[in-house]
Nucleic acid binder design. Sequence first.
DNA 1: TATATTCCTACCATCCCGATAGGAATACTG
DNA 2: CAGTATTCCTATCGGGATGGTAGGAATATA
Lengths: 133, 133
Amino acid sequence: MFSVSAKTQYAIRAMSYLATLGGRSATSAEIASAESIPSKYLEGIMSLLKTSGLVDSERGKHGGYRLAADPASITMLSIVEALDGSVKPVTCVDAIGSCAQGQGCQPRKFWIGLKDAIDEYLGERTLKDVTEG
Amino acid sequence: MFSVSAKTQYAIRAMSYLATLGGRSATSAEIASAESIPSKYLEGIMSLLKTSGLVDSERGKHGGYRLAADPASITMLSIVEALDGSVKPVTCVDAIGSCAQGQGCQPRKFWIGLKDAIDEYLGERTLKDVTEG
DNA sequence: TATATTCCTACCATCCCGATAGGAATACTG
DNA sequence: CAGTATTCCTATCGGGATGGTAGGAATATA
């Protein structure tokens, strides 16, 4: 359980690849080829990364993608959230007044604690940590 | 992302309900009614809990389910694993030699670390913690 | 104008999941 | 033994998410 979508795994590999380029930009096709990711599928992923501000893009000839920030300042949490949304074990974790049990709901506290644990782990590792040995 | 299946949430509620009975047994139908869980669906869930040794069951008239252990010694991890399997963000976390990158694969270490963080959180809370206020 | 790229929309196939149905096995009760 | 209440097993189904494809519009360069 708690498996990570292919989309997110692809995104991490794409980001890692960009991190190795030292600021140079790469086209979606180049990344797809280098990382063995379905080319057309990756296009959509790169768009999501763009929307979230994790990469910058340029269109037209000689266009492509580059990291929008230093690998050391891009958290894994930001990548994961860009594709699959925020960590939410159960739907009520962010619905403040929605719990019929009120603010003392113990299960809800339990799930929020899990979310916090995951967010903390993902938030304190960066793309640099995962990319470099 | 990382949402918990309805099956697991149902299971936790069913286990919580059993925990309130102080050792008395309850039928699947009673639990379903008390917790507003689809009755037939819950039957299958109880079977899984039985297989995992979390509950004991008796068939026939006056049959039913009871907790197999004290709520304080049933970890949330054991419940979650009974239904959705072990925490496995990516498939390679437990495939020792399967990583083409060898033992130094950094992404794999990252995912294993996430698994460990989740397992630790779930492993150190018990049914008692979640059931009681 | 030609070409290479991002970007947008629609579509499709497949799998997973929540849920239902029906009935077999089992155990108690009179 | 007959009836009944239960667990347990197997099959099925509909819907939604997911991985992946297709085609083309917008945009930039040469």
